[in-house]
Design a protein around this nucleic acid. Structure first.
Lengths: 229, 229
DNA sequence: TGCCTTCTGGACAAGACTGTCCAGTTCGGT
DNA sequence: ACCGAACTGGACAGTCTTGTCCAGAAGGCA
């Protein structure tokens, strides 16, 4: 019944085996889990302390206030999702099909891009002007990166913009709907999506390569999202 | 400083001039405004009563509990958005371009379909299993209606499905991003979207007709969304 | 006028949450 | 063994929220 039994699910978990001390990172990780699963309104100091099996007041050793914690979460989001999406877009690609596949990887491989975190932050932005501005800026950055990718593959600027929008909005929408379908189901529709997005059928080898790459990384969405009203 | 000065923004407002009584509908309308602008977590009995300039306890004359109110809001959503989307899809259309334009109307004309309510309910579904199930069912219903529209225009079943998904997810994503751009900006990209969605360029007259229809109904998104953390 | 139904407001209880204070524990270094 | 910094937990105050109770106001109608 010691604290060490609580293991954080985040990859950057700093808790070492035998280290029963709760760190600032533990608070952040647990808050992040809560943000992702229940939304920002459920990120409560008490809830986190209970998960950590630690007194609530310890929180104020690491953080000035709840607001301070929330700022940390937002910072984390800023430093991860947008950056990795932009990086995927900037990857060299022989064809546009390959470029779009690179981008798809963001949304399939949760190591690069946390889709649920993205939805949660977007939801959060609805109730905070400050968050809203940050999200808007991120959206603009992402959109520009996608558009630039199309332009590198010789799409005229205005067509590149429309295609970037279709692609980006569609992914945001897919994430928002959050249906947890098996990866094979998703992959089955990829050729159709590619045609819709690029306006041209990709070469079968390219698509197959992508499917293979995705399947290798596949990690089924872990856990249900079941919370009370 | 009497109650009558508070006027609800909803179209189905039942308050008559001179009627200073606050009705059940007033509570629902105000709650709906709050749900749309701030999210379900901000739908508080106290906040609504303050807006209505009425005692908080009056609420319990009209509603069994806060939960009861929330059920009412969800019911309202169920009875409006999905239904009108399905109706738009079912409208007879000479070409697929015209069909997609009909559907676009849903998202441009707020009389038919309240996009912000849709986002708010979707957000709500993240923290309530019951709401989640209802939203999932609505998504399935809508998707089927869009797919059926493509099939009526002779798209093979599997292609119709992929196209329906691109179209629907893209709209959900667009709503989620919630950028408030002027209608002309949006309309400018419509031909590009149409090409992406249907795989064929629509006839210019059709597109022009749609732009005209939209412009006529245009109502700029009223008000900012600025709330504290 | 007086009665009855409908509706309202003030007082109260209870719980959730934030943030503060402070005494006490733990652990590394000397 | 001792010291001090890092860290923890219990108690408390204050605010916000839901929900209950009940006295009483307002308006329609006999």
């Amino acid at each position: 019944m010691k604290k060490a039994e609580i293991v954080s699910l985040r990859p950057d978990d700093t808790s070492l085996p035998g280290n029963v001390k709760v760190t600032r990172q533990d608070w952040l990780n647990t808050a992040l889990d809560l943000l992702v699963s229940d939304g920002v309104d459920k990120v409560k100091v008490l809830s986190i302390s209970e998960r950590l099996q630690v007194s609530r007041s310890s929180f104020y050793w690491y953080f000035k206030s709840r607001r301070d914690l929330l700022d940390g979460l937002l910072k984390h989001w800023e430093d991860t999702n947008t950056q990795s999406l932009v990086a995927q877009c900037a990857l060299p690609s022989a064809t546009i099909t390959e470029g779009v596949c690179n981008l798809f990887c963001c949304f399939i491989d949760s190591e690069n891009f946390n889709v649920q975190l993205d939805s949660a932050v977007r939801q959060w932005s609805r109730q905070s002007g400050a968050v809203r501005r940050i999200v808007d800026r991120a959206d603009a950055t992402r959109m520009a990166a996608i558009q630039a990718m199309f332009e590198r593959h010789d799409y005229p600027s205005d067509e590149a913009e429309v295609r970037a929008r279709i692609l980006y909005y569609m992914q945001i929408g897919y994430n928002a709907v959050e249906l947890s379908e098996p990866l094979e189901e998703r992959l089955k529709r990829v050729p159709g999506y590619l045609l819709g997005f690029t306006g041209q059928a990709g070469r079968p080898e390219e698509i197959a390569a992508f499917a293979c790459r995705s399947a290798r990384k596949s990690d089924p969405l872990s856990g249900e999202i079941g919370i009370q009203v």
